[in-house]
Design a binder for these strands. Structure first.
Lengths: 222, 222
DNA sequence: ATGAATTTGAAATCGTCATTTGAAAAGGAG
DNA sequence: CTCCTTTTCAAATGACGATTTCAAATTCAT
């Protein structure tokens, strides 16, 4: 019966290597052999330390979540700023995390994959990853609209805002081919581009939201 | 040397079965054996008629694209309607296609997967699938803002609009778990919900866009 | 130091799949 | 009917990859 000492060096190297490989390839395509190679560990190490591949994956998702909570800049918005500024700051920081490269984007990549082919990790994300982010945006939108954060209208606006950020993350492969000048050789977006997109999304959303507090839907077309 | 007669019955059954299996599982996870079983064909049929699995996949993507062009309701907007009505109609029809079940959603599912792990099919989609849809929305937005359809501002607004629609498609697995009451037992969204979302997205976007024609970005926050 | 528990290593196992093979069947032209 | 092409079939083949095995090495407490 293995001991699973959390401090084991090999165990840690496996988690670090696995995070990268899972983020690149997703759970199913990631190869245990590849992970072990990068971790300079034997092929049997995953099964010894984690039982199986899926358990390692779950451990990685939780670790990435904890790490992201430790420093995610979009979660720490200056409470004294105006609601408009809060929104702008959130969007800029959120885009910044999504559109650069490296570990900060890994959890997002895994989440995108979970939506297409859910594993047990999706339940974890629904419980632990999504609510904090939604909560921050609901707070800002609620303040802007003078509505309770859990109002349905606020929820719709939150979806509209987050979707505008996430599309640039989701369509990165397409952007690479259609607008390569926007993307650096290391596959990250240029900070100036990020700032520009953040400005647009903020403006678009601020004006979009003011409509929401009052108006019903338009007349139906064809 | 096989003949690849396009009319072969087995060949057609394979394409129909493959479309469904690929849409469900994606290219890599789809099993040739599974496809052949559903097509009531022998396991060797795919290689005989298409050469290999990827070629079958490409053929399926093209067929789905042609079929979608034949009837996609969001591509046929009444040119005499007001720009506002055009937008509302587009959003409602586009959401309708995305949020129901069945063959009309298959191409979208495959496209979502191509963004995460591109194959040769992504190039086809970038050339043939995306431009027509973007073109329609650019036309509507250009009309609304009195700007040329290829203006950068129009492009930003198109992204904002499409993203708000697609997020409900992309997050369906999450909605299924967080808001099951919105989704029917057959995994489609209720028409009333679709209409409601379309109303929100249209309003939000109409107001968001009017800001765009004039204003620069907001002052920077933290 | 010694013995037990833990960890590592190399090779073997076991499944799953795409693809190939070669023979049989079906179809068509003369 | 008979030769020739096209199509189907069942059974290999061959890769790949997760997991297991068990022996060797290492660590640790006494």
């Amino acid at each position: 019966m293995p001991s699973y000492q959390p401090g084991s060096d090999t165990r840690n190297r496996l988690m670090v290597a696995a995070a990268e490989v899972f983020a690149e390839q997703g759970f199913r395509h990631a190869r245990v052999s590849d992970i072990c190679e990068r971790a300079q560990a034997n092929i049997a190490a995953v099964n010894y330390h984690f039982g199986d591949k899926e358990n390692l994956y779950l451990a990685v998702v939780q670790k990435l979540d904890e790490e992201s909570k430790a420093d995610a800049p979009y979660m720490q918005i200056d409470p004294d700023a105006s609601a408009e500024q809060k929104l702008h700051t959130f969007v800029r920081q959120f885009l910044g995390v999504l559109l650069r490269t490296g570990p900060s984007t890994w959890l997002g990549k895994l989440m995108a994959r979970e939506m297409m082919e859910p594993t047990a990790a999706l339940d974890y994300m629904i419980e632990h990853v999504i609510p904090p982010v939604e909560g921050v945006v609901r707070g800002i939108v609620g303040e802007l609209l003078s509505l309770p954060p859990d109002s349905p209208i606020v929820q719709l606006c939150v979806s509209s805002i987050l979707s505008q950020c996430m599309i640039y993350f989701d369509t990165k492969e397409i952007a690479l081919r259609m607008r390569p000048e926007l993307i650096n050789p290391d596959r990250s977006y240029d900070p100036a581009t990020i700032a520009f997109l953040a400005g647009h999304i903020t403006q678009f959303s601020l004006h979009g939201m003011h409509a929401m507090a009052t108006v019903p839907g338009p007349e139906s077309g064809t």
